[in-house]
Amino acid sequence: MNTAEMTDRIANGQGFIAALDQSGGSTPKALQGYGVADDAWNGDEEMFAQIHTMRSRVITAPSFSSGKVIGAILFEKTMDGEVDGKTTAEALKDRGVVPFIKVDQGLEDEADGVQLMKPLDKLDALLAKSAQAGMFGTKMRSVIKSANAQGIAAIVAQQFEVGRTIIAAGLMPILEPEYDITAADRAEGEELLKSEILTRLDQLPEGEQVMLKLSIPVKDDLYAELIRHPKVLRVVALSGGFSTDEACARLARNPGMIASFSRGLLQELRADQSDDQFDAALGGAIDQICEASVA
């Protein structure tokens, strides 16, 4: 797939984006869930080799090529690895799956009700490497904890500022100002978030677009205006800690918003499953998440 084909696939594809970007501190937990104990690896390199083996198995499973997975978000080391003797990006594109790369470097401590991204001091080099590797876009996460107007304005400003750097590098940014689903004032804060995003979208120069990855809103269809906005290629949803069933039920009430789930996609997969068992478990999750995304 070339850039135009990948753009069309993300804009119009009937499916969802798989989040395969666990990194650093989240990797041991992901491996434990998969049935790989901590004593099965020694040091970061062996740990990342284990997670790459898992991700390779996901990508090469028949159900992953069903057409229902239209994109996948990767961690840098997954991008650097190979699947089926090809770069991970090429292996994904061969299966009709558009590749994205996680570019944030973690979160700052909470201030004004939000956690901004830490300085992205490796961003330029990572963007150059990602473009060379054939990636289509990026993803970066920050977190909103409460309906603090000043904090929400700051988090949206940071996301768009970095997003424009990513656009200039020839990649499509997924902006992810996640709203903590446990926040008591989430409904109020999501209204503030939508307003700030709309303001920033209207300031984008002609010809520039972004994607948005947002928590499934308290108020159904809250983000319809964002979904229809000409500066937004696609709006995707994170599950944010909801069970898969609840996340899918809530997502189905938000037409035009598609999933970008991680745990919900992978939670039934185990290292000791046969290939048929593994694909059946993965395929069941893919079907459920896809159905909610295209409802």
Rank of each mutant, 00 (worst) to 15 (best):
N42V: 06
R253C: 10
V218Y: 08
S26M: 14
A61W: 01
A292G: 10
G25I: 13
A128V: 12
A249Y: 00
K219W: 02
T53N: 12
E5G: 15
G106E: 14
E5A: 15
F261G: 06
S243Y: 10
T244V: 01
T182P: 05
A292E: 08
V36C: 08
A111M: 04
D245H: 10
A249W: 00
I10Y: 06
D104H: 10
T78K: 01
I10A: 02
A4G: 13
G241Q: 01
E208C: 13
G96T: 03
S215A: 14
K194M: 05
Q132Y: 08
D124Q: 13
V143K: 11
S26F: 12
D275M: 08
A133T: 10
A128R: 12
M79N: 11
K93H: 12
S274E: 11
G240H: 12
E188P: 05
P230W: 08
T27I: 15
P119K: 11
P99K: 08
G71K: 07
R234I: 02
A224M: 07
S65N: 12
V97A: 06
T182N: 15
A169F: 06
K29V: 09
I155S: 04
R270N: 04
L226E: 03
A237R: 02
N148W: 08
G256P: 02
M211S: 09
R234W: 14
L266F: 13
I144A: 07
F261L: 09
T182S: 14
D8L: 14
E82L: 07
D21F: 13
D104W: 12
E206W: 10
C290P: 12
H52Y: 01
L212I: 10
A252W: 13
G284Y: 06
E178V: 07
L74Q: 08
M135A: 14
E108C: 10
S63V: 01
Q14S: 15
A147V: 01
F100K: 09
M47A: 02
G134K: 07
P177Y: 08
D275H: 03
M172I: 13
L198T: 05
L92I: 14
H229E: 07
M257T: 03
F242M: 09
E178Q: 03
S26P: 02
Q209M: 15
G71E: 06
K139E: 15
G81P: 06
E161H: 13
A280T: 13
K86Y: 11
E225T: 11
G85W: 04
L233T: 15
S65K: 10
M54G: 00
D39I: 01
M172P: 01
G241D: 01
A4Q: 15
T165F: 02
L171I: 07
Q273P: 05
M47R: 11
P99G: 09
